[in-house]
Design a protein around this nucleic acid. Structure first.
Length: 416
RNA sequence: GGAGAAGUGGGAGAGUGGUUGAAUCCGCGCCCCUGCUAAGGGUGUGUAGGAGCAAUCCUACCGAGGGUUCGAAUCCCUCCUUCUCCA
């Protein structure tokens, strides 16, 4: 949730930031107006309510003293009609404002470059150099099928398109990767947590997937429960509605979950292979901390994800997302793209975002700063998407005969 | 699945219609006294929103949402959660 107080206080400044993210001026004006309307409605209601409280108190005194209450009762009744009306006005104003405000994305940081889409993202750094192949490297689905690691047809048979099944070393590598990543993150100070794969509406509103992106979520029939699109949702919401103490911050967590996405807007993209699946494994990093330390934690998280790829000897690059490619809740995001020789391009494998207080404001995650309660900053990032990591290993470590070298760091996890 | 009980502030725990936003204890903050591996005294201590330079004041919140009432933590209804007993 954006800071409506800030919008009210510095409309020009704050709305300029939101307009960089494509929020229309008309919407912002509407928002400002609805906020003012609510304020006025609240004051009106509260004044009437105060009058009622005072008269009710008086009523008690009258009764005790045995005075005649008829005249007072008449006044109270008249006032109550107004109270009810004012309450209704206030309610409607509240709903109108919230409905609108919940659909407004986070304001990008000033450091975020302007741009329309992923083509305008700015490369920050390259890590490791892609190796030269003496043959034409194959794409991962070919390698996966040749090695018997992944069966795409049987996934479709069991569910529908964009589902796959891993067999043998393919399945074992996935498990090894998950364990390796969790251990790696834990050694960097992220506590491992295991969370539900189903969450309620409130949780998804807290992290910003709802109300705007319901189309991309799997919803349980007849229940207000959804399959998580990322562990970010349950893990961030662990502390929803809580007031933390400053000395327990930063809270840093890592979690492995399956993730479920309808990929509603991705028809026709990456239909082949396991780049874009409806269900995929991911190890996630989530942190909540004070505003003055969130950038340090952010840097650590990016380092964590990048270092995992380095440990796996996978060439990758860091990219600063432009305004057009930035997610709904992010103030700024660094993507990590891994080199895929089969595709001859870098592909996203991790996305690390600082949402500042955007999610905290929605989920009401606060901390005691001296006497005052303030919103924490929440951060999240993948470290990493397991399927895509497996893809990268296959494509980067392939030999001419189609065999694949197992990364050194994973061998202990495979009993090798 | 059936029967019952309960959900109050950081914690424990009072409170069954009216100066109760909530006694008391513990914890925590500050001050004082005292001085040695202590203890005592005083005082303060929820959240959100609004008015005001400020002191302060107003409104809402006692699991959630409705209802009854001039007035509800207190009565009624629905839901959620927890516990106990039964299947």
């Amino acid at each position: 949730m954006i800071d409506l107080k800030l919008l009210q206080k510095d409309f020009a400044g704050f709305s300029a930031k939101l307009m960089r993210k494509g929020v229309s001026e008309a919407l912002l004006n509407d928002l400002k107006e609805k906020n003012e309307t609510l304020k006025i409605a609240k004051v009106a209601f509260e004044e009437l309510q105060a009058a009622r409280n005072a008269m009710s108190k008086e009523f008690g005194v009258y009764k005790r003293e045995g005075k005649d209450i008829n005249e007072l009762k008449a006044r109270i009744d008249a006032n109550n009609v107004k109270v009810d009306a004012a309450l209704e006005v206030q309610r409607q104003a509240q709903v109108a404002l919230e409905t609108l405000a919940m659909t407004v994305p986070n304001a990008p940081d000033d450091s975020v470059p302007d741009g329309a889409d992923e083509n305008d993202n700015i490369e920050i750094a390259k890590v490791l150099t892609p190796k030269e192949f003496s043959f034409t490297p194959k794409e991962h689905w070919e390698l996966a099928e040749q090695n018997g690691w992944i069966d795409f047809e049987r996934g479709v048979k069991l569910a529908t398109s964009r589902f796959s099944v891993s067999f043998g070393m393919g399945a074992r590598l996935e498990r090894a990767l998950i364990n390796f990543m969790l251990d790696f993150n834990r050694e960097r100070g992220f506590e491992e947590v295991s969370v539900p794969a189903l969450v309620n509406r409130q949780a998804l509103e807290g992290t910003g997937q709802l109300p705007k992106f319901e189309d991309d979520l799997y919803k349980m029939d007849g229940l207000d429960l959804f399959l998580i699109p990322t562990a970010e949702v349950p893990v961030t919401n662990l502390y929803a509605d809580e007031i933390l103490t400053a000395d327990e911050l930063p809270i840093r967590m890592t979690a492995y979950t399956s993730c479920f996405r309808k990929e509603a807007g991705a028809a026709g993209r990456d239909t082949r292979g396991m780049i874009r699946q409806h269900q995929f494994h991911k190890v996630e990093l989530v942190a909540m901390t004070t505003p003055d330390t969130s950038e340090a934690v952010f840097t650590q998280m990016v380092g964590c994800a990048s270092d995992i790829l380095t440990a796996l000897e996978l060439p990758h690059r860091l990219v600063n997302l432009c305004t057009g490619d930035l997610g709904f809740g992010a103030a700024h995001t660094t993507d990590i793209e891994v080199w895929l020789p089969g595709q001859n391009q870098y592909r996203e494998i991790s996305s690390i975002s600082n949402t500042r207080d955007f999610q905290a404001r929605r989920a009401k995650i606060r901390y005691k700063n001296g006497k005052k309660n303030e919103f924490v900053n929440t951060l999240n990032g993948s470290s990493l998407a397991v399927g895509r990591t497996l893809v990268a290993i296959m494509e980067n470590n392939q030999n001419e005969d189609g065999s694949i070298d197992i990364p050194k760091v994973l061998k202990p996890y495979l009993g090798m």
